[in-house]
Amino acid sequence: MKIAIFTDTFYPDINGVARTLKRFSNYLDAQHISFKIFAPDLESGEYVSSHVHRFKSLSFFLYPECRLAFPNLLNIKAELQKFEPDLIHVATPFNIGLCGVYFAKKLNIPLVGSYHTDFDHYLHYYDLQFLSKILWKYMNWFHRSCEKLFVPSNETLEQLKQHGFTNLEIWPRGVECQVFHPFYDKKAVRKQYAVSKKYLLTYVGRLAPEKDVRTLLAVAKSLPPELNENIHWLVIGGGPLREELEKEAPINMRFTGYLKEDQLAEVYSASDLFVFPSPTETFGNVVLEALASGTPVIGANAGGVKNIIKPGINGYLCKPGHIQEFAEVIVKLLSNDGLRKQMGWEGRNYALTQKWDKIFEKLLWHYAAVIKELELEKYA
């Protein structure tokens, strides 16, 4: 099987789509499956691979980490004809994704897609709700020629069904439990980040409106003073709101910027709680990483996060934006060491069942089924 992947974000970009596709490409490499990735170039020029074909690009205003490329159509056509893929997978609905759809039709190559980002929900956080109908029309048009459309969670599948999408399949996310685990040297981690307080609470994610990070700050400020003086917050990630948030943040909150995977895993492991107020996740990779690290998660009762957190077992779900509810759950868990540790182990046990290899094997099975079905139709 030869696979061509068209995406507007790829490693070393730091987001869920790029990280998932990088893990998938690592898996394909290990299985000796031929693949080629068409993606935007990077300002830094880092990470050069013979598997990745890059194009000039500019940052997308709504999501600077995602770049709008200016692909050379003749170049793409020549690459595809040389590579002769059995299937094209479009992972994003921007310029490079459009090229994937176009050449799948033009060269008669089976086409599948994946839906990763809830852009409609994002519109609310940028006062662009008036674009919602146009966005859904475009998304329907873009994906309608896909033989399969892979979505990361049941929540997203139901949302797309309501908007008339068909041929939907669940493609969940896994976690590397050998990397994300509870067994790091917690004292060393606390020393590295100058954590002297009794409790370490962590947030990991983009610092942008759609992640509802303002709720995080409000929750941190609303905790009882006698508890608050024993809490150290680490906010990990970057984004357009970082500078503003740092100015507004309480004195016990430190912003680290982006961390490498091994550093991130260490911080998860040393954390007492992971607090994640984002209501716009189609899955929630960071939630699964925290659980794999033995850290209970307090998340928003919305999006794909609802399919990962089992309330009262490995964490709690709170009404999106409900500051008091988030604060009450934090107080409850920090006041009960036994419950918190039990939830941590339940989270770890759940994460151990979410293996990337099995997830990618199933995806390849779907690929093969699409290819076979279209071949049968040719000879029918």
Score class of each variant (00 low, 15 high):
Y379S: 11
T215W: 09
G344M: 02
F60E: 06
T92K: 00
N108I: 07
N314D: 15
K148Y: 06
N285V: 12
D127M: 08
G338T: 12
I313E: 14
E84D: 08
F70Q: 14
A292W: 04
P172M: 01
R348L: 14
I3V: 15
P209L: 02
H124Q: 15
L123Y: 11
L149H: 05
A290D: 03
K82L: 10
Y115R: 01
D127V: 06
T295F: 05
I298E: 14
D120Y: 08
E158M: 05
F274P: 12
H366S: 10
K362T: 03
S269M: 13
R54K: 15
T166W: 01
K310S: 15
V101S: 05
C146K: 05
H121L: 15
L334F: 05
R190D: 05
E46C: 02
L111I: 11
T215G: 11
L168V: 09
L168G: 08
F61Q: 10
S269K: 12
D337Y: 05
G338I: 06
D262T: 13
C318H: 06
A265Y: 09
V101H: 03
L73H: 03
F24Y: 15
Y63V: 14
K137F: 10
F38M: 12
A104Q: 04
R340S: 08
Q324C: 08
P93V: 05
G338P: 00
G16V: 05
S278F: 03
T353P: 02
L149P: 03
G113C: 08
T92M: 05
Y199F: 15
V219S: 04
N154Q: 12
V204R: 09
V204S: 04
H181G: 09
Q81V: 07
E43H: 10
D127I: 04
S132H: 10
I231V: 15
A194W: 02
R23E: 15
A300L: 10
E375G: 11
M343T: 06
P152S: 00
V219Q: 00
F61L: 14
D118R: 00
P250L: 08
G294V: 02
R254K: 15
V305P: 07
Y115P: 02
T9V: 14
L234I: 05
I330G: 12
E158H: 09
S335F: 00
V331T: 14
L200E: 04
I33H: 09
D185A: 13
A91R: 03
A292T: 06
P279V: 03
P277L: 01
A18M: 06
A104E: 04
V48S: 11
